[in-house]
Design a protein around this nucleic acid. Structure first.
Lengths: 192, 192
DNA sequence: TTCTCACTGGAACAGTTGTTCCAGTACCGA
DNA sequence: TCGGTACTGGAACAACTGTTCCAGTGAGAA
């Protein structure tokens, strides 16, 4: 049961952040410790010391990604009222933002690999984010509080599907006008 | 420019099919020639001879996956009239079918890896499938025919997003009732 | 028989992988 | 000054990677 180093270690935090940015650029698929270490200014031995294993490193990278995601969701929640349609519109504005493609690409890659997996660092990642997003769309205040069904769960499920499906389309084709127009019109119809 | 063996080779076809089924079980991420070869009853050398390289092998596997996908789309097209809503309903019935989770999981994994890539066997895979599906939803007869905009492109974009977003949710959570109900209700509202 | 052909799979190669080990450095409180 | 703690990175290891090479198989045509 050998685990990571103490999570509070400042060096560990710094390297996790840099590794995350490296993965944003190069993807998860071909991640390898030595090239990663060299790119972020350290050595493979140090990464092993700080993260315990490659899996530990990947877990730390995914934790950074999730932190980014939760930050976004929090900002959206603060900026909008408890109205599902308004929240969804803000989430979409973020997703379609031109600067966020890399984060979302990583997100889809992790989601895809997570689906077939029951163990390893990616297990549960997909189900986790579904829960996170549904929580926000349902207007919950925090993660892990009770089953506060203030919103129609069918509606939030549909809006979530629309958000993610539109994101997949946009990431693959880059045709922002078509996807954006379709999303806005559909959201309007769903809410009626 | 050394390329694969002649695509018509019967042995090549058979091994491509078996490799595809192996990947359906084990995923693309950790695919490696020797374990694959042993599992499907051949050797790594033979795979190199028949497919030219690992990339060639992966391309052949993806071609099998795409053939599966196009078969499904064709069946759906035959079974329904040119009505977008009817087609979408049939596609969804297929996606939500309990026997198809493995194919779709592979599909999402390939899609995710394809997004960050401009070269290699996965390049273009994501954009390709968007095109395939939009074509079917728009009621086109064949791939690669003219811009026959018989249907509202915004509506087909929206329906496609709904289909794929719902699929992501279902694959991750397995909560068929919630996702299925949300999809049906949303499709109804979008079409009105 | 003889020649050709598609196919086979084991041996070998050079490079990379995750991981272990350890001597070494800098800092900090006692 | 001592001892401890946090961190460093190079060396080494066994295992595995994609790939090349080649002697060989069996079938079918000439």
């Amino acid at each position: 049961m050998r685990e990571d180093r103490t999570d509070a270690s400042p060096r560990r935090r710094e390297l996790a952040r840099r590794a995350y940015e490296y993965v944003l650029e190069h993807g998860l698929a071909e991640l390898s410790l030595r090239p990663l270490a060299e790119a972020i200014g350290t050595s493979a031995g140090v990464l092993m010391f700080l993260f315990g294993s490659k899996d530990g490193m990947v877990r730390a990278i995914l934790a950074e990604a999730r932190a980014d995601e939760l930050t976004m969701l929090d900002e959206v929640r603060e900026a909008s009222v408890a109205d599902l349609v308004a929240v969804a519109g803000n989430v979409w504005a973020w997703l379609a933002g031109p600067d966020h493609a890399r984060v979302l690409t990583l997100w889809v890659e992790a989601y895809g690999r997570s689906l077939g997996t029951t163990e390893g660092p990616l297990a549960g990642f997909a189900a986790q984010t579904v829960h996170d997003w549904l929580g926000v769309l349902n207007g919950k205040q925090d993660t892990d509080d009770g089953p506060d069904d203030s919103t129609d769960p069918l509606l939030s499920t549909a809006v979530l599907a629309l958000l993610r499906g539109s994101m997949l389309d946009l990431l693959a084709t880059g045709e922002r006008e078509r996807v954006d127009a379709a999303f806005r019109e559909s959201l309007r119809r769903l809410a009626s």
